[in-house]
Design a protein around this nucleic acid. Structure first.
Length: 454
DNA sequence: GCATGATCATGC
DNA sequence: GCATGATCATGC
């Protein structure tokens, strides 16, 4: 635990660091650390001294000494902290500049592969603190977007190809010919003082090359901002003036309704109540969140937030295991873990769990609402589960997937519309459709712990 | 028509 | 009572 001015956080877990970072939202350092900044030598926040804001955030806010090593800033949590500027264009935040991710050591990168690269080790998870840029200001700048970001699996192919393009030039002794235009998301950007005095040696040629750093192009940074901003926009004015994080804001919407019955909440929102409907809980959630029933949930999707409603029995126990998408048998055999559907759309997501508990009459009441992301241990289990499932599908071994009785967190089970609902694989194999599930008792534990993961 | 989220039904 | 198989309701 790190003790800080505004409480404490656990520097070994991403969630805890992220939660503590939220204090910065809509604030500047001078708002929060006026006295502390007064005691610092003026050199510390000279606008000309680049990078000083990032150091100050680490020192003042996180009570953490910045490291210069290849490991991420928060080494145990494997989380790299980045502060980066925004500007406003057409009433929208866009990235002011590329996001620099570390100097290129030509000799070192020459010997690497993408998978084992320093780049991937250091930048797989980023805590991005976007602030609104103001000229000649440092500590006065206000943080506008706080985002815990992990390289999305869908972007890995592009990033990998970009990295390999750069790598290839170094291998061919053409480091001096590198250019930002070679690549799409990731670029080898000029860095350092420039000019003759900043030239460095490269491994496969005697020609000296400019010093360069790997960086996300600002276009790509805008994609990173995009999902978050779309959601902020969808939440509207109330959210912008609330000074709350997205998580806090969304959960606070539910607070006044905790304990109320579904039918009462639906009356309040003038929704039709028919107990046969299966999406009652979902439409109630949408109503409370102010999402139109005709589905504005897309913005949540873009921000990688999934809403799951969980029915609980009288004792607060989940009535069912939790189902996810169908397994695409032909696809999974071609996939790698980090690029898989399952990793992308189930594991690597943020969930908003909305639970409803039955009373003695069988009426459902809004019970607990919280955000949840899969903790590390469970992700490891998820990987083992996925590998096992994939292996059995490769072997056309459809009868022996993990079962709930195996008590291994996940299981495979059908969820097809009817029993006769089968799927035909590319080689003509016909088999029942199956889906990914998380075991009921695991959901129970998550509910009991209010989503706190350890 | 089908995927998905949610729930029901049956057998041990 | 639980594990497993099966089906329902809905939206796209």
């Amino acid at each position: 635990m790190k003790n800080c001015k505004f409480g404490q956080y656990d520097e070994t877990t991403k969630d805890s660091i992220y939660e503590y970072a939220q204090i910065l939202l809509n604030k500047s350092l001078i708002d929060l650390y006026f006295e502390e900044i007064g005691k610092l030598p003026p050199d510390f926040f000279n606008p000309r001294k680049k990078g000083s804001l990032g150091c100050l955030v680490e020192k003042l806010h996180f009570n953490y000494e910045p490291n210069e090593r290849p490991e991420p800033d928060f080494e145990v949590a494997k989380l790299e902290l980045k502060t980066t500027p925004l500007k406003v264009v057409d009433n929208k935040y866009v990235s002011k500049e590329r996001l620099v991710l570390g100097m290129i050591d030509y000799f070192e990168m020459d010997m690497e592969t993408f998978e084992q690269s320093k780049f991937l080790k250091k930048n797989a998870s980023l805590l991005l603190l976007f602030y609104l840029y103001e000229k000649n200001k440092v500590v006065e700048q206000v943080f506008k977007i706080i985002k815990l970001w992990e390289i999305p699996s869908k972007d890995i192919p592009v990033l990998k190809r970009d990295w390999e393009t750069i790598h290839q030039k170094i291998r061919e002794g053409k480091a001096h010919e590198l250019s930002g235009g070679d690549t799409f998301y990731l670029e080898a950007a000029r860095k350092g003082a420039g000019g003759v005095r900043d030239l460095r040696k490269q491994p496969q040629s005697d020609i000296k090359a400019n010093s360069r750093a790997l960086a996300f192009k600002s276009k790509y940074v805008n994609i990173i901002i995009g999902g978050e901003q779309g959601l902020q926009k969808a939440l509207g004015e109330d959210f912008s003036i609330s000074n709350l994080s997205i998580e806090e804001y969304l959960t606070s919407k539910f607070t006044p309704h905790l304990g109320k019955s579904i039918s009462d909440i639906m009356k309040e929102y003038h929704l039709e109540y028919s107990p046969k409907k299966k999406d009652l809980a979902a439409s109630v959630s949408k109503a409370i969140l102010g999402i139109k029933q005709d589905n504005k949930i897309e913005e949540f999707e873009k921000a990688n937030i999934k809403i799951k409603t969980i029915p609980l029995d009288m004792n607060g126990k989940p009535e069912e295991s939790m189902s996810f998408k169908q397994i695409d048998f032909d696809k999974i055999v071609e996939e790698k873990w980090l690029e898989s559907d399952f990793y992308n759309e189930v594991v690597n997501c943020k969930y908003l769990f909305v639970s409803f508990r039955k009373d003695s009459l069988g009426n459902k009441h809004l019970h607990k609402v919280f955000f949840w992301t899969m903790p590390k241990k469970m992700r490891q289990q998820a990987k083992a589960y996925w590998i096992d499932t994939k292996k059995k599908i490769c072997n056309r071994d459809f009868g022996y997937f993990w079962k709930i009785s195996d008590k291994k967190t996940f299981h495979v089970r059908p969820k097809a519309r009817v029993a006769s609902d089968t799927t035909t694989l590319h080689d003509g194999t016909i088999t029942k459709k199956m889906a990914y599930w998380i075991n009921q008792d695991v959901i129970y534990r998550i509910i009991n712990n209010n989503g706190k993961t350890n």
